[in-house]
Design a protein around this nucleic acid. Structure first.
Lengths: 232, 232
DNA sequence: GCGGCATATTTACCTCGTAAACATGTCGTT
DNA sequence: AACGACATGTTTACGAGGTAAATATGCCGC
């Protein structure tokens, strides 16, 4: 378990991802990641300039997984680069496909999603990880090829990002208050809501706790597309 | 400046909000908040059980501001409680009005927005601050009064939250790389993007940096309403 | 005037990120 | 084979931050 293999950035990020997946962001300390690799803490700093930068690495990982998961499909980067107007799927469907893939990747790493949402508050656009920028560029490429004007392109770009991100975040919100409780209503802790004040929340409780799923995500994407780039 | 006035939870949360607004979340430490009040750090713990709980207090503040800003309008809680079908605005417009108000409150406290997005990952639904729960309840009330079925209610509830939250988060992402630079393209740091790889990002740069504004937010809300609760 | 309670302070501890100096092992060169 | 330079990992150490526990302070009713 010692320094059998050399450290690499990939191994460091991989270890960080394992820790984050297993123990959440709170459990993700530099010391913990170092342990995971059987290495001293400061060794990590040869492969990341700071913890923040390592967090960006985690986000980048998700976007790389995204590229990989799309790679083999008609929605993938390859198909896009080929620019084959014959075999390429209609752009609207491509957007939906990308949204679905993002959804799956995000749900596979729920603890990293907060970073996806938050790091951009700090890291300016042009300093985002390459894989993230590539995803943006691909989105813009599709919109441009669709023949949208600049205004529609910008609006749809923003709308797509907002909806997909917001939807994923919303899906991952915690609803369970008491995990060991078998009775759904108690699991949610609905009994702590005064009936008088919160009748609907109580009545809909279980429904609120359920996920919307990929289908609703897809429905929203098409709704926004139709709004900001109406079929002519 | 000493302990002239007694401490209260409101004063503590207020001080925390001032610090957050002025110095961002990174600057928000318990010691800093205590300084702001001219008090020792541990004094704060009489009014909050932990820092996390204080962060929830910040989020709650925003929702209270939301209630206040809506209070005097036809979209406010009062108008809703009155249940006056005559004077009450059509529910679709009410949703748009609420979205706009949230947008304004959020932009007034950009540093708190990350907390709005993130605390729910940790805090289960029924443990959210009362003002937050009231906002949810009001939303559900409007949808129920609109005569939507349970399914449409749940879908629209989720869609509304997702879109508004995602949109606000997206609006607040950092884009400026070099704030002192007058030239827009350099301000964004576009020169760091290889032309070959990122032609569209570079071309659209300034457009991406711009805000979508309230109008696009509103447009998205109506698009999603039409999708999940189509006018009959 | 005094006991008691709410309020605020003092002390102290532990975790965390990371700077800086140091050790070690590998490899190319002669 | 010997050596020096560099890349890789370790040791040591510091300061910031959250918060537990014990302690002091001031005000209140009796």
């Amino acid at each position: 378990m010692a320094a059998r293999t050399r450290l690499t950035r990939d191994r460091v990020v991989g270890a960080a991802l394992r820790v984050a997946d297993a123990e959440g962001l709170d459990g993700l300390s530099m010391r913990r990641v170092a342990d995971e690799l059987g290495v001293e803490t400061m060794a990590l700093y040869r492969y990341t300039s700071s913890k923040d930068e390592l967090l960006d690495g985690l986000v980048e990982r998700l976007f790389i997984e995204l590229e990989e998961s799309l790679g083999s499909t008609p929605f993938g980067p390859a198909a896009l680069a080929a620019g084959d107007a014959e075999t390429a799927p209609p752009w609207r469907e491509a957007l939906v496909g990308v949204a679905r893939a993002m959804y799956r990747v995000a749900l596979a790493h729920p603890h990293v999603v907060p970073l996806m949402a938050l790091r951009p508050f700090t890291v300016p656009l042009t300093r985002r990880p390459p894989a993230v920028l590539r995803a943006h560029e691909r989105l813009l490429t599709r919109l441009e090829r669709a023949g949208l004007g600049e205004r529609a392109t910008l609006e749809l770009y923003r709308a797509f990002i907002s909806w997909v991100l917001g939807y994923i975040v919303t899906e991952l919100r915690e609803v369970v208050d008491n995990p060991d409780e078998p009775e759904p209503a108690f699991r949610l802790g609905l009994h702590r809501l005064p009936v008088k004040e919160f009748p609907r929340l109580r009545a809909l409780g279980p429904g609120l706790a359920a996920r919307g799923g990929e289908e609703q995500l897809a429905a929203g994407v098409t709704a926004l597309i139709d709004r900001f780039a109406p079929p002519t």
